[in-house]
């Protein structure tokens, strides 16, 4: 197990956002966190990377309490792909090179430059290396942020709605890239995601948050219309089309 979450509780002022949340993520596993707007998906991710401190409970990364690890040590183990942060005028190469920051003492080494070059080539971003991030399309910029996360050489990958604002082709490309790297590198990935069909297609397990609690933790084949109705208040059918589970709202 790489990520282990033990009964965490988190509140904004007096409003409980997470209550008794408990789960684990193993190497090579991609877990989707689903739920309505405001269900606490992004808050959960911020608790996992130590940006927020749960009032009760503990998050373990590689068996160590995330609160006891320094910020730099957390960044060595855990990389995040946030929803925002794509507005800089730094070049694509500079942004991806920032992924090496947690591993550097004074600045990036020659090996860091080579590593970044390899990642850019693997992700099909080499042609864009010297363009400002702010000049790229949403899909390209999101891929760059994923490349930066990979440059961190993490054990855990946290993604906050990685397909937001992307067109259909870029959504599939992004999720494909995430799944490929998670399986190849043996990472533990947790992604907050709204699109249930993408979650069913690319993730190994789905956690449904409702009222601050985990209402269901299931594999794609175990998602039921009753679960969808409970969490979203929407009637839906779940069909298997071309070998894949698909949620179709009525």
């Amino acid at each position: 197990m790489i990520v282990s979450v033990l009964d965490i509780q988190f509140s904004y002022n007096s409003h409980d956002v997470l209550r008794g949340v408990r789960f684990r993520v193993d190497p090579g596993q991609c877990v989707a966190v689903c739920g309505t707007n405001g269900a606490g998906k992004s808050t959960l991710l911020r608790c996992l990377n130590g940006l927020l401190r749960p009032r009760v409970g503990t998050v373990f990364l590689d068996g160590e309490d995330v609160e006891l690890l320094g910020r730099k040590e957390v960044a060595r183990r855990c990389a995040s792909v946030p929803q925002q942060g794509h507005g800089t005028d730094l070049t694509v190469f500079d942004v991806v090179l920032l992924g090496r920051l947690p591993h550097c003492r004074w600045g990036p080494s020659k090996e860091d430059l080579v590593r970044v070059e390899r990642i850019l080539e693997e992700m099909g971003l080499a042609e864009l290396a010297h363009r400002p991030l702010s000049a790229l399309s949403g899909g390209e910029a999101q891929k760059v942020i994923l490349a930066r996360a990979l440059a961190q050489a993490p054990r855990v990958l946290l993604l906050d709605e990685p397909t937001n604002h992307l067109d259909l082709k870029n959504q599939l490309g992004m999720m494909e890239a995430i799944r490929r790297v998670v399986h190849r590198e043996g990472l533990a990935a947790v992604t907050a995601i709204h699109d249930l069909n993408l979650a069913l297609r690319y993730c190994d397990r789905l956690l449904f948050l409702k009222g601050g609690r985990i209402h269901g933790a299931v594999e794609p084949s175990e998602v039921t219309p009753a679960l969808i109705r409970d969490v979203y208040g929407v009637d839906a059918v779940i069909e298997r089309i071309h070998g894949r589970w698909v949620v179709i709202p009525r």
């Binding site: 040590e73 925002q84 730094l90």
Partner: peptide, 12 residues
């Protein structure tokens, strides 16, 4: 420059 939260996740 990429954002406060982004910088924190990079260990700053």
């Amino acid at each position: 420059d990429t954002g406060v939260e982004s910088a924190k996740t990079l260990g700053v």
